[in-house]
Design a protein around this nucleic acid. Structure first.
Lengths: 339, 339
DNA sequence: ATGAAAGCGCTAACAG
DNA sequence: CTGTTAGCGCTTTCAT
């Protein structure tokens, strides 16, 4: 913290070259192990670099080579473990290739997403990962014309700009409904969070209702809490459904967090699961597996999605017709014990 | 994905200048609303920029102005919600100031942390946030001599390089012990995850044992699962303690995730909380509050820590003696119902 | 195997 | 208020 003595400017590649008594381009070659140089020269350069505490300036490097090692990641939320999982997969895979993730969080706001995308693009990233397929027209235009590889995550139900990695939320909803129906539940309610912005949750619900309709059924009740997803919201939502709708046999939640809220409400009230009430979630979070009755849910390969996206982000496209623009990593229904 | 037609190179500031019929510096001034220009000129520049779909190149801008709007954030894990919370606070606050977070995850490996720090520094970030006060000697040297503002997070028990924001883990441990003692528990066990790398968990335990010792007591049993923190690990850990140590009255867990594992084990086995066994965690996660018996724990201001760190990261230091290098955001003991 | 020199796209004086 | 001119620190031809 002693800034009183103005610190000498950081060593540059030119300083290293001078100290090693070689040209700048030689230092550049040695430091990137690219091109040819004698072992002897290598020694001297490395020694000089170490001596000066040289840290290469990637900003300058990127500008000169017009090829950044930054990958932009725009996600809607960090409020539950879902996107951190995706981030984890991506960052792990990216790091292995010498890339760095730059992140932005849109809080499920399309406008903020658009601004984040614009901001990311200004860093000329090697690729841009963004959650979902729905974006403002402006954002789509920006991405489509940017020349940057765009990878859309966690949704396959719709057209993608370049590449999409994830699963079908519509199919998730359909599978969930089929499971509940197969278990004999007919009077089913839905408890979800604010759907306006979370288009993926909306698609799951759409798929769910589709299957019900196909069987001549309909949702018994439907509670949409005007708040972001949370255990509290799930609890409050179920509370309202129980107070209102009589004879509900099963509840489909917008995701596991919401379902946990419902689960603990049942526990507190002594509502026996799944006999008196069945619960079904989405995501397959770890905690659901250690509950006295494991939560019935659908597990998604979040870390794998992040990792796959990272691979696509840095992979050179060798083939002229690009690889299949859709990478379906699927999902797994976990029967559990609550439905 | 149609790359067959080689896309024209992205418009540059020079292109905009030419299109608007003004000089480059004028465009630069207008685009950054910095310096003076006539409203008329402004119009023409904005129009030209919009027409060309101009996206400024921050890489070039940074190199020219030697002031990056990137902030590096190096965290140990994304496996639970703790660091995503910090990230959320930081990204929110950073974004408001036009900064972008670049993240790296060390997986609690000091060497990977060191490499991540070096990689981040190469982007010449405005500031670097890093979790904890313990780093390799090399990493410390890198940070100390980088000329970059360093902000260490989530720990105040030890010397910081520049600034530290968080709370005292030692005090957290002490407060936890005092609480359990005050409630009359004497035969106390500890269930934790792999402590070798998680120095903050180790400090909490040290503080906890300190207080026990002051009362002439000692831990009744101590189970350290050789795995990262998780609900499963917490469950397995408590299982072993129960199988081994008889008469344990209370268990102190390394964190809430671990405690949840224990909680649900008790639920499954019909162990009445807190009469037959008391549980105490750390972090104050949301889920703990909706449990039939809210988890007794200590809540930490994670989002606030991220936000405060972001503010320090971008704040110009006006004062010569820098502000207090330690920002203690404290913690709050949540009595709950399990201890 | 190595060096010289020309940029990469922008910002920051400095003139006008 | 606006244009000209140097760089920022590196990579990349292109010679040698």
């Amino acid at each position: 913290m002693d800034d009183r003595v103005p610190r000498p400017p950081a060593a540059t590649l030119a300083d290293v070259a001078a100290a090693a008594g070689v040209g700048e381009s030689t230092v550049s070659r040695v430091l990137r192990s690219h091109g040819s140089f004698s072992p002897k020269t290598r020694e001297r350069v490395m020694a000089a670099a170490a001596r000066l505490g040289y840290v290469p300036n990637r900003i300058a490097g990127t500008l000169a080579s017009s090829g950044s090692k930054l990958v932009g990641i725009v996600i809607p939320s960090l409020a539950n473990i879902v996107f951190p999982d995706v981030l984890r997969g991506a960052s792990q895979s990216l790091e292995a290739d010498g890339y760095q993730p730059v992140i932005a969080v849109s809080e499920y706001d399309p406008l903020r997403e658009e601004q984040s995308i614009a901001a990311m693009l200004a860093w000329r990233p090697a690729a841009l990962m963004v959650a979902g397929l729905e974006h403002t027209a402006q954002a789509r235009a920006l991405m489509a014309s940017s020349g940057t590889r765009i990878i859309e995550l966690m949704d396959l139900d719709g057209p993608s700009i370049h590449l999409a990695v994830g699963y079908s939320n519509l199919e998730v909803g359909r599978a969930s409904a089929r499971h509940l129906l197969a278990r004999g539940y007919r009077r089913i309610a839905y408890v979800g969070h604010d759907l306006a912005a979370d288009t993926r949750a909306a698609k799951r619900l759409a798929g769910f209702e589709q299957v019900l309709r196909e069987q001549g059924l309909a949702l018994q009740d439907r509670e949409t809490v005007a708040a972001p997803t949370s255990v509290e919201a799930g609890q409050a939502g179920l509370e309202r459904v129980l107070a209102r709708a009589k004879g509900v046999e099963a509840v489909y939640f917008s995701n596991d967090d919401m379902a946990f809220g419902g689960y603990f409400l049942c526990l507190s009230r002594g509502i026996v699961l799944p006999e008196k009430l069945a619960l079904f979630g989405f995501n397959g979070l770890a905690i659901g597996r250690v509950l006295p009755q494991p939560l019935s849910t659908i597990r998604t390969p979040r870390v794998e999605i992040g990792a796959a996206a990272a691979r696509l982000a840095v992979a050179p496209f060798t083939c002229d017709p690009p690889p299949d623009p859709r990478l379906d990593l699927g999902f797994e229904l976990v029967p559990g014990g609550t439905a």
